[in-house]
Amino acid sequence: MEESLLKVNSLEAGYETQKGNIVAVNNVSFNLKKGEFLGVAGESGCGKSTLAYSIMRLLEDNGHIFSGEIIYKNKDLVRMGKNEVKKTRWSEISMVFQSAMNALNPVLSIKAQLLDVMKAHSDSFDKSEAVKKAKNLLELVNINPERLNDYPHQLSGGMKQRIIIAMAMALDPEIIILDEPTTALDVVVQRNIIEQIDGLSEKFGFSIIFITHDLSLLVEITDRLAIMYAGKIVELGKAKEIYQNPLHPYTKGLMNSFPPLTGEIEISSGIPGKPPDFLSLPPGCNFQSRCDYSMDKCKNEEPELSNCKGEERFVSCYWVEEECCDDG
């Protein structure tokens, strides 16, 4: 058994609001192995980003980790002091933020921003070394190092995105979290960036947590997939297995919501309804009201994430338990 690099144990995190606490990440547990490419998918507002920010310890002022632990290299990130977290952040775990197009400061050159990152999180660079490193980073993401003195507006969307990825790699982290890195980009640039990320991860051996709502992207490139719904992981397993045989009704709905490019066109309806309000979650299974397979039991009791069909496949659904897992 490979050793896991990051271990999240029954994490609960969310936000304090005037109307009450929102638990946006509810009892989430998973492992991330070294060099693994984990995909996290779900609709907007299902807690994907909150999960990422919790791991980075970058939640907003009203955001809290209520309970649980995030173990990285035998240390619990949740209980770490601020200064200690600062040392892990970026040098060990770094992140590519959503809408990276706007994540760069428009009045600073690329060089200044890359050097800033190195200066803020590490003491081991003097200036000439840092510039050299910055040039190397640009080469890694296929941008001419001469562009170092350019400003963000001189670069295309795809290039800005790659600069942000270069920035995340600046201190050779062990884990990179990518939060919807390609949402605003068109298909060709998207494919290009994903292949680069994949290639770099193979070259340097870092692990990736890739967050997106576009499942069609994830199944092709990730090793394992976690499907999130209303703050919980509802299905977890190998990407290939989930694609070939989605078990949870929500995963099935997500799979049917993108039209295929080849093969027959089926008129599909997507997923009816909308995600539940975190402030008034229904009792029982959260997905019950949108589910085609809902049973009486689903309305009252909440299913737990349990092992199904093989070692690494976990699903939380009563219907799946009855229909699919009985024979095994």
Binding site: N142, E220, F258
Partner: peptide
Amino acid sequence: MLLKKAAPQPEKGFSEEKMNLSTE
């Protein structure tokens, strides 16, 4: 053809084939 290749196509299986799309 390039657009077709770049589009995510999970139904086609898990090809390891890479495209070189460095130009813009």
